[in-house]
Design a protein around this nucleic acid. Sequence first.
DNA 1: CTCGTTACTTAGTATCCACAGT
DNA 2: ACTGTGGATACTAAGTAACGAG
Length: 923
Amino acid sequence: MGTEIVSESVMDNGYDDSDDDKPLVFKRKSNVASNSNQSKSNPQRSKAVPSSKVSPMRSPVTSPNGTTPSNRTSIVKSSMPSCSSKDSPAKSPLRNDTPSTVKDRSQSHKDQSECKSEHEDSEDDKPISFIRSRNSSRPNKGPSSSRQLSSPQPEKKNSGDQPLDRANKTIKDESDDEAPISLIMYRKKNDSGISGAKQVSIDEKKPLAKKLHQNGPTLKNEAPNSKVLGKRPLEKDSSPNQSSLKKAKVSASPTSVKMKQDSVKKESDDKGRVLVSPKPMKAKQLSTREDGTDDDDDLPISKRLKSDSSNSKTSAAKPKAVKLSSTSSAAKPKVTRVVSPRSKAMTKNSKKVTKDSKYSTSSKSLPSSGDGQTKWTTLVHNGVIFPPPYKPHGIKILYKGKPVDLTIEQEEVATMFAVMRETEYYNKPQFRENFWNDWRILLGKKHVIQKLDECDFTPIYEWHLEEKEKKKQMSTEEKKAAKEEKLKLEEKYMWAVVDGVKEKVGNFRVEPPGLFRGRGEHPKMGKLKRRIRPCEITLNIGKDAPIPECPITGESWKEVKHDNTVTWLAFWNDPINPKEFKYVFLAASSSLKGLSDKEKYEKARNLTDHIDNIRTTYTKNFTAKDVKTRQIAVATYLIDKLALRAGNEKDDDEADTVGCCTLKVGNVECIPPNKIKFDFLGKDSIQYVNTVEVEPLVYKAIGQFQAGKSKSDDLFDELDTSKLNAHLKELVPGLTAKVFRTYNASITLDAMLNQETKDGDVNQKIVVYQKANKEVAIICNHQRTVSKSHGAQIEKLAARLEELREGLKELKTNLDRAKKGKPPLEGSDGKKLRNLEPNAWEKKIAQQNVKIEKMERDMHTKEDLKTVALGTSKINYLDPRITVAWCKRHEVPIEKIFTKSLLEKFAWAMDVEPEFRFSRQMV
DNA sequence: CTCGTTACTTAGTATCCACAGT
DNA sequence: ACTGTGGATACTAAGTAACGAG
């Protein structure tokens, strides 16, 4: 395996331990430095880092001296410190900034879940993000309109509520917001209380919405900390043991890893094992491993990664030393050690690495960025598979009521359109126009069909429904056979061998032709996405590897390259936007992707050491004379506090969406005394609506940026993402705007998990995890459309709940009667009931109450999450090591949190030590 | 610097599929 | 056994960001 070096970086980071290492650039030095900053900034806050931090000043950067004002709430936030526990109190105050919004959320939460109590606590620490969050509401998702505007949505989606809800939310928030931080804090608490009250039933739609909003606000957090803290200690204690365990694991781990790989490759099974998990699990793992080990031979790529990790693990022992050292050194290298198996790779790497010794190998080293670094030494794959040719059905559409003959090509495109009849696209003018323009070219100018609106595609649509039905009706054996046949056909394309390791390929199927489904009001929606031919595809493969035969006889590839500084296996130009490309990459479970994922998290983790300094810097620059400097400061503040995306420039032929740097004056509204309401369409045309209390200086600065401009002008006219990132890089090497999202998401998860996990059964712990996951999803504004059946499902639950309540009444009546010595009444269903002792009735009543509570909880949760997508953050923003470590500490099987594919994707994180914390300061 | 390329990550939705309840 | 559900996976659109040329 490899492992290689690459790992180095990885290793460093190590899985394990972590700490230090990190690859990336930043790092460590900072620790020190950063601290200092913190202190500065914080003054207020306290958070304080523990002294250790001290200050160094890091980078020169910018930061000025402390200065800064107090504001900073944000700073506070950051504090993640929460962890710090100690400080906690302080923090909270800081956080407060966050505004009311937060509060709201909390409320909602509470309402919903009983958990509330927990909520209450925590709050403070939470990162900035918390705060924000919520307000945003989500609009609808549908491609269609809904989302977009805040405006009302079409009925479909929620019954409309959502939009409203959102709106409401904001409103609500506002109310709270005003108050000063301190107040806020208090409020929060209150809110929570309130919220409790609110609970309200889900049913009421608006309420719901509101609730949601509330949720948002909820952040809650405050108090709890302490509690959490308390827990920790325990945990720690345990840790020793664990550690030992770990080690064991570690050793094992490799295997496990391997296993995974194997599993992956082969399949199957086992993944589970991988898991890790709690001690108990360990046993399993071990066992498994053993098995696994055997396998290895293959060693898959993954292994390598893993191995790295394992190494790291191994390191477990080593670790520290390494880490430390490494840390310091810029390089990160460390790792080294790993022995990588494959020497092959090794050579290359060189670059970076080396540091240490070892050469490692491989490839890439750390650099994540990828840039010119070597990504692989040998690469073997079979190219891509093309969709089958179109099979004509011969069904005629009607034009002005009469059947029309179409050529195969014309029919193919007509079918693409006909099949979309039940989607929102079908009736959109833009979609129809674009489709018509492209289809018309195929029809020819003189074709009988001259107007799309006169066409009746019903016959084809019905044929399509019949086909679907036929497919559904196939017997299971037929389905199975068809599946196997397909697998047989595709098998060879599913795998690539990278540096001797078999890895899964992500998207080896060339995208089939279809009508472009752009999101939001995409100007190109409906355009024909034509079939891609081999002569448009460029392959990238090892020099010594056999060139895949072109699957379509008579044709050939556009080009075959041998570039080992990139990870793509093939690409072609996007037919909709010829300037862009469609790439074929390895799957997320591959070591190449795993390594880069790990680097991403290490980068975010590294930010932990510099965040205080960064906050101090931007706070100081809120009043800078230079407009660009001030804009950078405010933009950075928003990105940090609200987890906004950077906001690259976009072309006119794309949907009109914005990110931080591209916010328009009209997307931001100043609400005295110091709240800002954001309302814009972000990525995927998902609406972001959030009203937040900001630092007074930020409020003032935004007002200045808006002055004299029209609503459609850029708020940050002197800024763009490259300037912003250039500035961030000065503060911390390798830092870019997107790192803040990862940082905020992960730090929030870590803080919430550590504050709110209580003793209890696994299911209760999972609820805590989901709650933290939800908070992150809200912060990142990850939305999903409400399922069509949501309303009906809620009604069903409500009906069942009502039945339970009726049953409770009966039980109570019978209890009273039993106390008086009377026989029970007949059941509502007419059944006779037995005569029971009063305490037996009481017992039944208690059971019934439990059922009712559970149902209420489920309903609230369902309603609460109807527009929140938890998966996106789990896949892209939450450092899996936080989850794995938490699972180990609390004996929650990792499979309860990660699906099979996530376990494969996060194989590199499975052996972290239970004590792993995202922020070193949290430990 | 700006702009166009290029490479790679992030994201919502469509579809698949296993499971629970009937 | 059947079917509705919701979770998991597949798909591909839509972002971020690094570079290099002019």
